[in-house]
């Protein structure tokens, strides 16, 4: 366990800096947007009323003071009242969070369950038809825009064959297409990386030794290869999980999935800035927390990482 504490501390510091930077950008962008008070009041509100609300929101104070207040409030989960919902923004966003987590987790599990076997088989049957088809598809999955993958799935699976519903969140059947869409990029990345990680290990000396000893090919793959290919696969898999959050905005919009991504887009149309701020901040927090956990797991798995 030597070196784990300093490693942990440096990663924690980095996570804190990321979060602080994101919140600072959110603050600066908010200030650039000008005075939010006219949005809160009817257009014919008297000047005295405008000044009262400005004072109430602390907008009459110097910028550094406002900034300190903003950071303090953000840490306590206070992003102000949602203009549209007339409730604390934080509470509104929390209400939409479970749908996003459900979609994200399903997409992630689907991606891993599909990508791992494909990656391993592609490596074992290198240059076969299976390998070429899978890697061709993976290339498409990595460079095609998420929203258009969703549109194509709706067009073919829902409208053409009538197999699954196009939008909404009612049963597990509503979850399949959004999860596949959101998971497509991760699926492609994980299968490509698994393939190259397994290929690398298959060429290692100890694998040749195992084969020379007469160990069957299936056992070579299962026992000697997968375990050693695991570290890079775990890392990329974890990173993919984090980036699913960004894709959720797009996927939720395509499939009318009632999560925080769609909420954010709607709030932009409604000029409901407290909600937008809160969503960006909360997503950043989630993303940074996930990456921190991955770093931690990685550090535990592979002591060499701690040194760097």
């Amino acid at each position: 366990m030597r070196g784990l504490l300093p490693f942990l501390a440096s990663r924690l510091l980095r996570a804190a800096i990321s979060l602080w930077l994101v919140s600072t950008v959110v603050f600066v962008v908010m200030r650039l947007s000008g005075d939010p008070v006219p949005l809160l009041l009817p257009p014919d509100a008297p000047r005295s009323e405008i000044f009262r609300v400005r004072a109430e929101l602390g907008l009459d104070r110097p910028l550094p003071v406002q900034y300190a207040f903003f950071l303090g409030n953000a840490l306590r989960g206070d992003f102000g009242q949602s203009i549209h919902f007339r409730q604390p923004a934080f509470r509104v966003v929390l209400g939409y969070l479970p749908a996003t987590l459900e979609l994200g987790l399903t997409a992630f599990v689907l991606a891993v369950l599909i990508a791992l076997p494909i990656g391993v088989l592609s490596a074992v049957w290198r240059n076969s038809v299976v390998d070429q088809a899978a890697m061709g598809l993976a290339l498409v999955g990595q460079s095609a825009p998420t929203f258009f993958i969703g549109i194509l799935l709706i067009l073919v699976v829902s409208l053409n064959f009538g197999l699954l519903p196009t939008s909404g969140r009612e049963s597990w059947r509503h979850l399949v297409l959004p999860a596949l869409t959101l998971g497509a990029f991760a699926m492609a990345s994980i299968s490509r990386l698994t393939r190259s990680a397994v290929l690398e290990v298959l060429g290692a000396d100890y694998v040749r030794t195992a084969r020379a000893k007469g160990v069957s090919e299936a056992l070579v793959v299962a026992k000697h290869t997968l375990k050693n290919a695991a570290v890079p696969i775990v890392t990329i898999t974890g990173l993919q999980f984090g980036s699913l959050l960004g894709g959720a905005v797009v996927t939720e919009t395509v499939f009318a999935w009632p999560g925080i991504g769609r909420l954010a887009i709607h709030s932009i149309y409604n000029r409901d800035y407290p909600i937008v701020q809160c969503t960006v901040f909360l997503s950043a927090l989630l993303f940074i927390a996930i990456n921190f956990c991955i770093d931690l797991i990685y550090g535990l798995l592979d002591p060499r990482v701690r040194a760097s």
Binding site: S18, V22, V29, L32, L245, V276, T279, S283, F287, N291
Partner: peptide, 20 residues
């Protein structure tokens, strides 16, 4: 650079464009 890589940029882009 690290901080930016550690964050899905599209969320930030959405925030900035929403306001500007």
């Amino acid at each position: 650079a690290d901080a930016q890589l550690a964050f899905p940029f599209i969320l930030l882009a959405i925030g900035i464009i929403a306001v500007l």
